[in-house]
């Protein structure tokens, strides 16, 4: 039995009187793509924010398998160590690319930021690395010196993916990475995520409300409602044979798949 890459236990979070997360726990195994589905307000984004250290939970534990095989207690790590993890070993792809990109510097500089932050001090190598990753996410090299503000929505998402993957993370959190993109662009970005995650053996936690995206990309699914995980299992199983009434409702509400 392999050791899970992350193990979350009993995570709860309230905002005032609203209980956004209730006793959420799950495991993510190396190389696995785990989907979290549920409607707006079910706690998906709050969970992702807690997992990525942007928000502190009221209670709960998160253990991360370190590169050396040791188990890191994520919430109790020193700030400096946690930040170092977050800019090398962990990636975060936002739904809104302007949150994940520096819109005022060129695409190349965006990709080069993580290596430069990890001590790369050679312009030529930084540029080479940026070019290489522009290629991997299928962005034209001729646009490497353009700012992301001059990019289309789909290109911005590709750039965000490159900016994260350049540091060779083992774990990537994605919050609705294809939300707000039109259908054909969405398909190409999904294709890219699927290709890269299997090629690089990435572990991904993917939050989405789009069950089509969940079916295409994820291997296992967690269904959330009102801050709790109400159903979990292999994606095909959950989507084809949902057990909970709420999941049945959710699945039957997909347009064109009725």
């Amino acid at each position: 039995m392999t050791t899970p890459l992350i193990r979350a236990e009993g995570i709860s979070k309230s905002f005032g009187g609203i209980r956004a997360l209730r006793d959420v726990g799950f495991e993510l195994y190396p190389g696995e793509v785990l989907g979290i589905v549920g409607e707006s307000g079910s706690g998906k984004t709050t969970l992702l924010n807690i997992l990525s250290g942007a928000l502190a939970p009221d209670s709960g534990e998160l253990f991360l398998l370190g590169r050396d095989g040791s188990e890191l207690d994520f919430f109790r790590l020193r700030e400096r160590e946690r930040r170092a993890l977050l800019r090398s070993d962990i990636g975060f792809v936002h739904q809104d690319p302007s949150l994940g990109l520096r819109m005022r510097v060129s695409a190349g500089a965006n990709v080069a930021e993580r290596p430069l932050s990890s001590g790369l001090r050679d312009y030529g190598s930084a540029r080479k690395l940026a070019a290489e990753w522009m290629g991997k996410v299928e962005l034209p090299l001729s646009r490497m010196d353009s700012k992301p503000s001059e990019y289309s929505g789909g290109m911005r998402q590709r750039l965000q993916i490159a900016r994260n993957l350049v540091s060779g993370p083992r774990l990537v959190y994605m919050d609705e990475p294809t939300g707000g993109l039109d259908v054909s662009v969405q398909a190409r970005v999904l294709d890219l995520i699927r290709g890269l995650s299997s090629e690089l053996g990435l572990s991904v936690v993917l939050v989405t409300h789009d069950l089509g995206v969940a079916r295409l990309l994820t291997e296992r699914l967690l269904v959330m409602k009102d801050g709790s995980i109400i159903e979990r299992g292999l994606s095909d199983q959950v989507l084809d044979d949902p057990q909970e009434p709420y999941t049945q409702l959710l699945v039957s509400s997909i347009l064109g798949e009725a």
């Binding site: 800019r87 080069a112 930021e113 430069l116």
Partner: peptide, 22 residues
Amino acid sequence: LQLHANAEYGILYVKLYEDITR
């Protein structure tokens, strides 16, 4: 403040990268 506290000065090199590129 966080960046100074942790001596994370990567973004200054992003600025230099941008300068050389432009």
